[in-house]
Design a binder for these strands. Structure first.
Lengths: 377, 377
DNA sequence: CAAAGCAACGTAAACGTTAACGGTAGTGCT
DNA sequence: AGCACTACCGTTAACGTTTACGTTGCTTTG
């Protein structure tokens, strides 16, 4: 019962050398089949666990990880990227290289970026794709080539991807429905806007919303969802039409980032005051809408935490060879007027002394920070 | 501009040996003052960052960390402990020993446990104390002795403690107020129960609640807070009296775990149906109250994440010598009927295949899980 | 039959840091 | 002068894994 079993212990027990043991444990060529079996057996009985410090010290293979992502500074993706970088930096063994590959628009150059990552012989890939179908075969190929692929926010099912990290979509929809029910407290019709029903995550949000209404708030009924395909004019136009047909609409649950056009449509129709609106995510343009009360709550999808978790899972797989989980679901955060400032605060440099200890604080329309606020004091 | 500066690089640049460089960098005795200064200067200009792999490999000092905590299985503290253990296990370099020291009741043996930890020569201490005043001098002594002390949930100000991790209390109170305002939509009086106003965290929750009401919901006014001192009969009795004086009370915000006696008092007074109740934390007895609608929402303080963060910060300090932050504030989670099951799900062993992909699921009254749900699929 | 090839395994030098041990001046003391 | 003592600094063997290279036998081939 030694505290720490080493390669040497295994070698000694079998009367062979550490080199052979190492080759056997790592499926390297040049080891007799029976010898390899004996090594594996002995490793198991002795309870061998590799010393990662020694491993990293010896072969300083710097992990190369490609982060393939949409270009531009949508605050959401910026936050995800920041989360990945943060977690990469916090890895004790400094040997991770992040390579950011971007493509300009949805479905433009996404495949090329993936190919480029493969050719650069990266050790892992993190993707946030809105249309994972396009990458299906490539992800499969990468996985077969032992290159793990992490999906963020949207899953790519049946591709052999290592894991997916996302908000729990069903819980998000359920929370939105619960709030609607409590806010309204009357009969009425509700609308839901989403990007595309064929995307699992969006369908689940709608499902969670609908089922929760049915269970707990039977007085509220939900209209068929409104697909905007991530196109803002389409969101505006469809909302406008909807409000023409249902001028008595009680509330709207916006599951995508395209909330501004919907709000504009409601305002242009003169119906903004009568509508209870729940949105998704948190970005600068949304802040005044929350403060003014036009948006009563928004469901924050914690992009930074998503990035952190994505990197963590991938790194743990690359370091230990095992994946802790193939699906990481985060609980969404609820942002309203009162706690808005908490989410807007940034880490705000190492210079600031104390954090707010009273409720008064200048409202800031910055990019939203994450739920974990670090500060000195 | 070498990629990795080592001790040897510094030594070579100064024409001295790595041993001296090492001693200089670690304030070990036996090195000339001017030499030490030159080493520190050179380390800075070369951008030296210690190779932690080599460090851990060389001196395999196993970190001993004491976790001093209230005995018994309050689900909250169990979750915090679980979070600490999880994070300790996930440390790549396996050299952390957790020592759990418990004391039976509030303020009974807490000091002894702290003394015991000090005598055991631990490398760090994590405490969750409800009455940090009692430990003040001891924490100060430990800090002077270079033994970092982490506070969880409740801070111990001006003691030299390394850091504190807790829920953002102001945001919690603000969120509760926001929900109250939206749920009620009318004039009315609100009550707040807390443990003790002298505890910073509780005072802040009340402050956040009050200020948010003033700013956004002037029709609602809040009564002076009701202190239960963590004693359930006291909570029941004071609630009963309160409801006698204010039978038209509109809602109650319970900031502690003692929500059941308050609910019982309301039920006994026949006022449960007219009251909007928002509670704190999530434990088995609360689940049916949420399902039945008696409690419209609860603010979940994420004990597991608190534990994880506490360990992380402490470990980062012990490993790198620097503390990333002295105050970690987490965003609380909102739990309602619709998303209750999400929070009740446990990691549920490695055996289960897929996680729920539809909304139907047997309600389970288990100990609440954390916001990060790990599952295989 | 010698040269060459191959499979299987041993050897040893890294990787960067730590810590115990040795060495060399210089000082004060007898 | 001899001794002890200190202050300062160099040397070196770990720590466990990786990897390039050497070393055996043994089979193939010209």
């Amino acid at each position: 019962m030694k505290t720490n079993v080493t390669l040497f212990d295994i070698a000694e027990a079998l009367g062979i050398s550490t080199g052979t043991v190492h080759r056997a444990l790592h499926n390297h060529p040049g080891v007799n089949a029976t010898t390899k079996a004996r090594v594996l057996q002995m490793a198991k009985t002795l309870g061998y666990r590799p010393n990662l410090a020694a491993r990293f010290l010896s072969s300083k293979r710097g992990l190369k990880i490609s982060v393939n992502t949409l270009e531009g500074t949508t605050s959401f993706w910026d936050e995800v990227r920041a989360g990945i970088s943060e977690e990469a930096k916090s890895v004790l063994m400094e040997n991770v290289d992040l390579e950011f590959r971007t493509y300009p628009r949805l479905g433009e150059g996404e495949e090329d970026a993936f190919e480029a990552a493969l050719e650069a012989k990266v050790d892992g890939i993190i993707i946030f794709s809105s249309q994972p179908e396009k990458l299906r075969s490539r992800i499969r190929r990468a996985s077969r080539g032992r290159i793990p692929v992490m999906c963020v926010t949207t899953d790519a099912p049946n591709t052999g991807r290592l894991a997916v990290v996302s908000i729990d979509t069903f819980a998000s929809g359920a929370l939105a429905a619960d709030l609607m029910g409590r806010f309204l407290q009357r009969k009425g019709r509700l609308a839901v806007t989403l990007s595309d029903l064929r995307i699992t995550e969006h369908a689940e949000k709608f499902s969670g919303f609908e089922k929760t209404l049915q269970s707990f708030y039977p007085d509220l009924c939900v209209l068929p969802p409104l697909e905007d395909h991530d196109i803002e004019p389409e969101a505006y136009e469809k909302s406008r039409e909807l409000l023409e047909v249902y001028p008595d609409l009680a509330g709207i649950y916006i599951t995508t980032e395209a909330s501004i056009p919907v709000i504009n449509a409601a305002r242009d129709a003169g119906l903004l005051n009568q509508l209870t609106i729940i949105t998704t995510d948190l970005f600068p343009a949304l802040v005044p809408q929350i403060r003014s009360g036009a948006v009563s709550a928004t469901i924050y999808q914690r992009p930074r935490t998503q990035g952190r978790m994505a990197f963590r899972v991938l790194h743990e797989f690359l370091a230990e060879g095992e994946c802790p989980s193939y699906q990481v679901s985060l609980a969404p955060h609820l942002v309203m007027r009162g706690n808005l400032d908490f989410f807007l605060e940034r880490q705000s440099g190492e210079t600031t002394g104390t954090r707010r200890r009273n409720g008064t604080r200048e409202p800031s329309a910055n990019v939203p920070a994450e739920d974990v606020i670090l500060s000195r004091g």
